[in-house]
Design a protein around this nucleic acid. Structure first.
Lengths: 350, 350
DNA sequence: ATTAGCACTCCGAAACGGTGAGTGCTAACA
DNA sequence: TGTTAGCACTCACCGTTTCGGAGTGCTAAT
């Protein structure tokens, strides 16, 4: 069967109405509210066709029609006109985002807050995966007799440090030497490689002769590196779910919240998604428990290399056009923020 | 009216039964399940008395009795016998806690996880308030031409650092001098005082002559100090609420989750609570939205000075005896862990 | 091809009635 | 005088029924 112009119009009207009201939309309502120039009966015929084609469903015989996942997909791919955010909207977002840039992670978190407040959905933000990140230098600093601080700075500017207790006495000179040696050995190496290869072991035997210090330091070194690879997930507006009619039911609200509370699982799912603006609708989500959700994510870049993600999750019935635009604008904005911040000199246009 | 021995026994039985079943308990059930040696009719009379005295309520005429907040309070204060945890239980907790001590904050977070899993309630943990913490030393380290790292170590062992971009060129010597001067000026001062007094301004004028470096460094210094004062709230088992019959209702579950999602507010409430093991029941909680929750918190100590909190929140119907013991044991354990960690000298068994 | 008309379906809200757990009261009992 | 058995009464709960309305699909007329 052909998807005629008229069918598309009707479909669009149904989607638009359903997104607003969350009620199955009937032929009468449709012909009244949207002047399509045809009578309810005609619309009914068309709707029957659309249902046959898989774009509409029927909660039950005597109810109106509801768009299927396929309908939303069609809408997102073809029908939807990208909503250009107005100047004011853009300003609001940009201003709010920049009102709070003094720290990297805070900015990311803040972005999630903004996103949630604007869309009234549950939003999340993922700090960059640092697989590509490499070690810039390592420093060891004395604190007191049996405490030292190990500091690791990565190429991307991430700093991580740990206090560690050493059992053997140390001299400041020893520390310096160990730090220099470590820097010399690991500088430029990818963190993930340092962790997977058994570089550490080799190194330990090399240096063992020098001092027992290394024995105290190295295990912590690895742990700290692990921490540096960890991504953080921020989530905002979790309780917005309660305002959404689809989830006006204890079971559904429960499973939604439980799903998002499994932060590790959810993080993994997010990391696996492709970069760029990605929309997955209902059953397109591999995971069963997300089968009546839609997920919109977009990736931002730090320094052109590291990639983090930000996005929203909500019912399949959502304002795809608007939300997509907002998510996209936010990530663009984040990317450019982090380009400026890290380098200061923006000569490259990639 | 007198609270006779028998009335207390009945009350205790009612509480015990209600805590288990979450169903209003009737006179017949009571006389059958607990051999009090009196008939349902007698129990009814006593229950009527207890109701008059404010210890019981009636959901409706023909329902069993339900303990009031006052009853729980009485129970906690007088009736409850402190449950001594068994050796195994203690071992399980201790082992789990110590399986993961490589980092301070992680340990705290981990404690919350354990607590939630054991009690099946929603648990939380608060990192110590650092009002009392003071600065130990400050260091500035070169990274590249226009990036340096500022590291602040506090008396309690907390380390915090930030990368900052400096606009003026610097020499390593300059950094050293600035760091030394800062350390000299702030060492031993409480962080909160440094932030509130306008020490900074004075300092800035002092040092202005030396280099423009200070201008780049000082604002970041304050921000980092602020961050160091911030406490973190970890929460676990939020969705346990869904398994509790009292919250088997969208409205209630919603308000519970919303309340706990206001992390800032909730944190404030926790900080304001006294130290030690504190139990607040239902309407005893100042906040309206917590009027049908009970809150059990206890404080742990770091290095004998800083105080953090850990606890659970759940329906007023909870196993006070058990939960209190667990919370207490956990905090004791945390306190001694952090004593060991910082000091190294363990005088206690284990 | 479109539309008006009509019988039909089915959800959801409201009304109904029976059941059972539990109470309060009274009178008998030890 | 405290305790208990008996009994009438209450009321949430649950399944059933009823009814109206929104919406459909089909057919026949335009």
């Amino acid at each position: 069967m052909e998807l005629t112009e008229r069918k598309l119009k009707i479909l669009q009207a149904i989607i638009s109405d359903y997104v607003k009201t969350a009620e199955p939309v009937g032929s009468r309502t449709l012909s009244k509210k949207y002047d399509l120039g045809i009578s309810p009966a005609t619309i009914r015929n068309e709707m029957a066709d659309l249902e046959e084609m898989g774009y509409l469903t029927h909660p039950h015989t005597s109810a109106g029609r509801v768009p299927s996942d396929a309908a939303y997909r069609l809408y997102v791919n073809a029908l939807m006109e990208k909503k250009e955010l107005s100047k004011e909207e853009k300003n609001v977002i940009a201003e709010r985002l920049h009102s709070n840039v003094h720290e990297f992670e805070k900015t990311i978190e803040h972005a999630a807050t903004i996103l949630s407040e604007i869309t009234n959905l549950t939003s999340f933000a993922l700090t960059p995966t640092k697989d590509e990140d490499s070690i810039k230098f390592i420093n060891l600093l004395p604190v007191d007799e049996n405490t030292i601080v190990m500091m690791i700075v990565s190429e991307s500017g991430k700093i991580s440090n740990t206090a560690l207790t050493v059992k053997v006495p140390y001299t400041e000179e020893n520390l310096q030497i160990l730090a220099k040696t470590m820097t010399y050995n690991y500088k430029g190496k990818k963190i993930s490689e340092v962790l997977t290869d058994n570089i550490i072991e080799n190194f330990e035997t090399d240096i063992a002769a020098m001092s027992g210090l290394a024995k105290d330091v190295m295990p912590n070194f690895m742990k700290t590196l692990e921490d540096m690879l960890n991504v953080n997930l921020y989530m905002e507006g979790l309780t917005n779910i309660f305002d959404i009619p689809e989830y006006n039911d204890l079971q559904k609200a429960r499973s939604f919240i439980e799903m998002l509370s499994q932060k590790d699982d959810f993080t993994k799912k997010l990391i696996e998604r492709e970069d760029g603006v990605i929309v997955t609708i209902g059953e397109e989500n591999a995971d069963d428990i997300m089968n009546d959700c839609s997920l919109i994510t977009a990736s931002y870049h730090v320094d052109g290399k590291l990639v983090g993600k930000i996005g929203v999750i909500g019912p399949t019935r959502m304002k795809y056009s608007e939300v997509t635009s907002i998510v996209e604008y936010l990530t663009d904005n984040l990317s450019s923020t982090f380009k400026l911040e890290s380098g200061g000199n923006e000569e490259d246009e990639r």
